[in-house]
Write a protein that binds this DNA or RNA. Structure first.
Length: 266
DNA sequence: CCCGGAACCTGAAGGC
DNA sequence: TGCCTTCAGGTTCCGG
């Protein structure tokens, strides 16, 4: 599923082709997926220019000129792609946007519909998201960990730090050798620094792999990426820890499969 | 404030 | 082959 690295990859792919483009038509197939004030998404968007494409956490944002914005959250199974206007429309396509003078459509598919799109006629500066996981500085990160909440639960809370999903939380905690259930405020300074560095490391190396493997990991379709081969604990059911050779364990944390090495993560 | 659990949703995967 | 169950997880909400 798309997490920060995959969204970043999408943003980098869209920028050179969409920034500067002017929206021609908007086709909303599933109304409840696209949240938009009246009268319609089309009325708000047609004729506007894509000024800038940004990412914050797992959220992708298209800033429009002269005003307005589109924000996209892909949830678990969302895909965002550019296709020729004549290309067959895939199942579960909820939104299509075409652009003036270009044989291109931005298409969003999302079978499970955990994602959503928001259309706003005016840009808003407010955000319900915490600082981006790749932009946060160490002192701010340290500040976030000053509460007793379980560390994994904290990492997954997008209002505290934005962009980390279940798999990357497991990978970062493993790399930092920290048990997922440790109260955040019990971490030593050294552990906090290890975790901070591990998050940056895990996320940027996944971006280096174009985050492509994540989607393929869930739904292998013959075009396997490479990043999931780098997972050391996440989803490594019945495998052994590459460091100590002991078994990797799985336990539920807030209803999520949590993988960790009980010997290395303390 | 923190936690656990349920709900939303579809497709993949495994059992029989 | 095919039906059935289980699992997967980002987010939100509810009860303890």
């Amino acid at each position: 599923m798309p997490e920060l690295p995959e969204i970043e990859t999408i943003a980098r792919g869209l920028r050179p082709r969409l920034e500067g483009a002017t929206i021609a038509t908007v086709n909303v197939r599933r109304r409840d997926y696209v949240r938009c004030p009246p009268p319609s998404a089309s009325a708000h968007l047609a004729g506007k220019r894509v000024r800038k494409i940004r990412r914050h956490g797992k959220r992708l944002q298209l800033d429009l000129a002269p005003d307005g914005e589109i924000t996209v959250h892909l949830g678990m199974s969302g895909r965002l792609g550019l296709e020729a206007s004549s290309a067959t429309i895939a199942k579960h396509t909820h939104l299509r946007i075409s652009f003036r003078g270009r044989n291109l459509e931005l298409r969003l598919t999302d079978p499970r519909r955990f994602g959503h799109v928001r259309v706003r006629p005016h840009r808003s500066s407010e955000s319900d998201l915490g600082p981006d996981a790749l932009a946060i500085r160490l002192p701010a990160f340290r500040q976030l960990l000053s509460r007793p909440r379980q560390i994994k639960s904290l990492l997954l809370d997008q209002t505290f730090i934005a962009g980390i999903g279940n798999m990357y939380a497991d990978e970062a905690l493993y790399e930092a050798r920290i048990h997922p259930l440790r109260p955040a405020n019990s971490l030593t300074q050294k552990e906090i620094e290890r975790l901070y560095n591990a998050i940056e490391n895990v996320l940027s190396s996944a971006i280096g792999n174009k985050g492509a493997s994540i989607e393929n990991y869930i739904r292998p379709d013959g075009t396997l990426g490479t990043a999931h081969f780098q997972f050391r604990v996440a989803h490594q059911r019945n495998k052994t820890c590459p460091v100590c050779g002991g078994p990797i364990e799985r336990m539920p944390v807030r209803n999520r499969g949590t993988y960790f090495c009980p010997a290395c993560q303390t």
